[in-house]
Write a protein that binds this DNA or RNA. Sequence first.
DNA 1: TCTGGGGTCCTAGGACCC
DNA 2: TCTGGGGTCCTAGGACCC
Length: 419
Amino acid sequence: MTCLGLVDCNNFYVSCERLFDPGLRHRPVVVLSNNDGCAVARSDEAKRLGIRMGDPWHLHRAEWQRKGVVIRSSNYALYGDLSQRVISILRRLAPSVEVYSIDEAFIDLAGLEGREEGIAREMRATILQWTGIPVSFGLAPTKTLAKVANRAAKKDAGSQGVKSLMSREKQSDALAKLEVEEVWGVATRLGRRLRALGITTAVDLREAQPDLLRREGGVVVERIGRELDGERCLMLDEGSKPARSIMASRSFGRPVTAQRELEEAVASFVSRAAEKLRRQNLAAGTVLVFVHTNPFKTTERQYSASDVVRLPVASADTSKLIHAAFCAVRRIYKQGYRYTKAGVMLDAIEPADGVQGDLWASADDWKGKTLMRTVDRLNRVWGRGTMVMAACGVNKRWAMRSEHLSPRYTTRWEELLRV
DNA sequence: TCTGGGGTCCTAGGACCC
DNA sequence: TCTGGGGTCCTAGGACCC
């Protein structure tokens, strides 16, 4: 059985702040979001005080002060830099690494089975020594189980930051203790539906029939169930895919009412998003603008709207994108409302050289050369690991169109042709 | 006065084509 | 003008993640 590791930096933003201010150690620390809006990271001490993710600062300010909580505004440049350092060490130590988020990565430990715990402990010590960032390792045969393992590594002090769920018995133990909503990919909505079926713990989800899960929650939930059962459905994805959408948005510090002000904000969002676009050598085909009033002010009149403008030709040119965005603003702006947030989303993204984003092989050609050529082109254009529309598995009724017929996806044409 | 800012994937369903 | 199977492509919106 092959082994995956999930490496997760502990309370990442807080750990970063502590590196540069050791006086923060052993104290309750909270890092706030942009505009100092709400808590986005808490130290263990802060968590013990009952401070939750997303707690708004302005509502808890006095209370936190009383409890001696140290507050920090976020510094994403710093976190990004430290994240890169951790990742580069991982890349040196592991054969393949998938960066999942700013503070998490999956690593492949295939071929190291039996020694994975020792190896993880060594990696952990190295990362701590070289960067000062404490990390936790979860080891398991699938990504979803590795998530469970990682959580156990953090919760269980005796594990010292490394937890292996490579054996079925250990998996059963850990899953029995886990509420279904705590499984990666299940949140309140899906949790509610699963509970209605009598599935209340992660182990229930593992034991459930895949076709039941398919019927109730689609391919996503089926996949989660199989993954918990030790079947690998989510593969390690090393190739960093080009972005499919790029967004820039902000809450305003104070309510905005004039169209003029909205336009100014939108123009700055577009220019930021366009920069990101160009840095990745991409162009956008559509520009979406959204605005809304303060949803927390239930007594005020609410309004929210969005509008998409299609460009005749995909572009990364800031002025063209701004022009499109202003058309959208003109359509959605209404006088008399107090806007507190707006944003811009660039979509229909394609490589700047003008090659179309989606590549198709029609069903007639499934066994033929066209498919091979399509996948080939796909790999050339997008890099590897990006084809998601192709499914392998039972395939009698291709009329299902975009329904994914298999819980597994692949970009390897050998595998596609085998279907 | 003040409640983040990004993203991804999947599904349903409509318009349209041969 | 209608029938109908088979298929493409796109969009909106839901759900989730960090």
